[in-house]
Amino acid sequence: MNNATNFISIEGLKFFGKVNASISHEIKNILAIISETAGFLNDLTDLAKQGEDLKLSLLENCTESIAEDIQRGFDTIKQMNQFAHSVDVPIKEIKIFETVELTVKLSNFLSFSSKVEIENGDKEDKPVLTCPFLMESLIYQILLFVYESTGPDGHVLIQFDSQKKDGTSLIISTPTNFILDGFPTPDIQRAAKFLGFELNINSSNQKLDIWVPYVSKEIVALEKALQINSKS
């Protein structure tokens, strides 16, 4: 196995485990809310049996709450399914906005995540030939790094700049300064290298700029390496 595929296997398993753990935590939280709401309905029923008036508004609130949490569960499972399918084909054309949006949603399952706003000024979602799983892993790791600096009350803005023909710039910023000491970590650096992405820190205006080429020579080389590995 070459360096790139070895890296994807090891780092990929770590990433997969981390995302699965956060999704299972989210599902457990949803079930805990539904369980407490069902328990509250049971309490109200017991009180009604004892002759207390049953307030219809309370019943309505409970059923609405259960319906909302069931929807939250469905949304979580949908994201889990989308994420699981990102390993179906190692290299393929993906939509950049869609991939970033999914990765942000996955990172928001973490209790310390900041609020993220994604602004797609270009409207058109550009296709990128990449390794979807490694790209999600890279953006996820970068977001975690940013969250550590901005904290759970912080706001993060992600913008896209597709003015250049051969790629899109993914710009991450916050209204307040963020501490970028130690960025990029060796794992972030390696993932970006294998994908052919460039990481630029603009320290004057506190922005992270991730250059995402539509097709990089690195990704073409990785595709070839993966084909050789699958044949051998």
Binding site: N29, A32, I33, E36, T37, G39, F40, D43, S65, D69
Partner: peptide, 16 residues
């Protein structure tokens, strides 16, 4: 608990 709905519902059941 940071799960607001869970904490609020548990609090209501305690108050009951």
């Amino acid at each position: 608990d940071d799960e607001e709905k869970f904490a609020a519902m548990l609090a209501r059941r305690i108050e009951l």
